[in-house]
Design a protein around this nucleic acid. Structure first.
Lengths: 154, 154
DNA sequence: GCATTTCCTACTAAATCACTTGGTAATTAG
DNA sequence: CTAATTACCAAGTGATTTAGTAGGAAATGC
């Protein structure tokens, strides 16, 4: 598992999209403005998110980005993996002379931990985060959550 | 929270130390050999670990490193924070014009998530990891023994 | 005294980060 | 159709981080 600032930018941008994309697409320019991330960096991140089908782009005036699926079906792990290109940590998955030695033992331990971290993040969806915050901000605004708005009828 | 390869190296090295340091100190040369990490890089990592008192160095022949405290009192979060120098993610902790806007909302969400990840890693100790693996190893050995006796019987 | 080992500083090639620049392709408003 | 808007794409860049070298100095055991 790799959790860098790049992953944080991606999660932040996806949160922005989940919050503001209820009625109509959100432009990268808006996200750039809202979150203080450069437009071109967002483009790079969204290129990765697009290939993993976590977002869907619409060109032309009035265009922008939609979530690729329901916010409940997008986990934090999905987002981070999309932009951080999950690398294999230990190249000794039981093979080679590494098995049995001290290195492989610690590698196994690390792999187990890494899997746990991944599972933890895979269990948290964008929808979860948004709803959790809505609970806190309940009385200020009633921002209805995305899940209903996958009626992106063209 | 920041989980980089640097943090992984540190956790791996600390695991090695926890596993092999039961009777006497472990030299960085040994860890370097076991884990395939360069000696000088280990020195840098252990300099950080030392200032956080997660390890204790003993100079001279027969010297090396001990854990700074019990393996049960060292969390994964402790280790990662020691080498990765936990940076503040969002500079708008309720202050400035950021509060209320879309940026601050997503920042709050991210901060909550970040705290959760930290708590998750703070709940896992070196001792936990080691015991977990020892449990597995015992089972494997038992299975191996059973298997071989089976094959003998057959 | 000598070998060992931690401890310390400076340096470096390679990678990554976050961004800039300069486009092209699709779509809509007029 | 034209012009504006937006996603899409590629090359390059300074700053930082990564992982490692190199060359020591200080403490300690024999």
């Amino acid at each position: 598992m790799r959790l860098s600032t790049k992953g944080r930018y991606a999660v932040t941008a996806m949160l922005d999209l989940a919050l503001n994309g209820k009625n109509g697409p959100v432009t990268l320019a808006e996200i750039s403005e809202n979150q203080g991330i450069s437009l071109s960096y967002l483009e790079q991140l969204f290129a990765a998110l697009r290939t993993k089908e976590l977002v869907r782009g619409v060109r032309g005036p009035g265009g922008g980005y939609y979530l690729g699926k329901s916010a409940d079906d997008i986990s934090i792990a999905n987002i981070i993996c999309a932009v951080d290109e999950w690398v294999e940590f230990t190249r000794c998955g039981g093979r080679q002379n590494c098995s049995g030695g001290a290195r492989c033992l610690t590698h196994t331990l690390w792999d187990d931990l890494s899997t746990e971290i991944f599972n933890f993040l895979a269990d948290i969806s964008l929808g979860d985060l948004v709803r959790r915050n809505l609970g806190k901000k309940d009385e200020e605004e009633k921002l209805t959550v995305v899940a209903s708005s996958d009626s992106q009828a063209a």
